[in-house]
């Protein structure tokens, strides 16, 4: 298991956003999380990536415990261990969050060099290969403000991949993009799936989720309502709530 989240609880004030969620992701698996806004899917990703602290449950990456609960209090691992665990995942944001003052190449290169302390020339070679793969070979020296949204998101994916994570999270990666630009980003994610990159994707792109994932999770109201093989969940949903939700998308 790359990621094991069990009994995850999270609330903002009185609002319970995650109610006893379990999310386990195997090596090479591509998991899509779908569901209406406010269902807790983004919060789940933010908890998985420590951007939000959980209020209950356990998070493990590759058998290393990041957070656990004893006597109703959540204990996170020490700073050093968390830093180590953080190396095992990457996150691609809805709003890209590139560093605007760095060139495309530097956006991709900087963290491997200044966080992992790796050799600059070696990292540059890899970064250029990654940009090549993203179809951005000639954009290495551009700045994010000179790129389209789709190009920016592909840089963000390259930046995350440059850290060589064991698992990559996508938080609605195409929600800020035009339909046309959405396709170029989805194509890249699909390519990564074919290369057996372990991924968890929160998305509203139903046909994409169906095509690319090994497993689809439907969330609503802080619960996982239904999950399974994409053909099953989309083609023959068991729960009434899932049927309703998917119907709205077809309509």
């Amino acid at each position: 298991m790359v990621l094991e989240m069990t009994n995850i609880r999270k609330h903002f004030g009185d609002l319970e956003v995650l109610k006893d969620i379990e999310l386990k992701v195997d090596n090479g698996e591509v998991v899509s999380i779908i569901g209406p806004s406010g269902s807790g899917k983004s919060t789940l990703l933010r908890c998985a990536t420590f951007l939000e602290r959980i209020d209950g449950g356990e998070i493990k990456y590759l058998d290393k415990t990041a957070a656990s609960t004893k006597d109703n209090t959540v204990v996170y691992a020490g700073k050093k261990q968390l830093k180590e665990i953080k190396k095992s995942f990457g996150l691609v944001f809805q709003q890209f969050n590139l560093f605007p003052h760095y060139s495309v190449l530097k956006n991709v290169m900087d963290a491997p060099v200044s966080v992992l302390g790796r050799n600059k020339d070696e990292v540059e070679k890899e970064a250029r290969e990654l940009l090549d793969k993203m179809g951005l070979r000639d954009k290495a020296d551009s700045y994010p403000c000179e790129l389209s949204g789709g190009q920016q998101q592909r840089v963000a994916i390259a930046r995350a991949l440059a850290m060589k994570p064991d698992i990559l999270f996508f938080d609605e990666p195409t929600s800020a993009l035009d339909p046309e630009l959405t396709l170029e980003v989805l194509r890249i994610i699909k390519q990564l799936a074919e290369e057996k990159m372990t991924m968890v994707i929160v998305t509203h792109e139903m046909s994409f989720a169906r095509a690319v994932s090994n497993r689809v999770i439907f969330m609503d109201g802080g619960y996982i309502v239904e999950q399974g093989d994409p053909e099953e969940v989309f083609g023959n949903p068991k729960q009434e709530r899932t049927k309703q939700f998917l119907k709205n998308y077809e309509g």
């Binding site: 951007l51 190396k87 995942f89 944001f93 590139l98 966080v115 992992l116 850290m163």
Partner: peptide
């Protein structure tokens, strides 16, 4: 958040 995720 982006910097934090990358480990800065």
């Amino acid at each position: 958040e982006a910097a934090g995720i990358l480990g800065y």
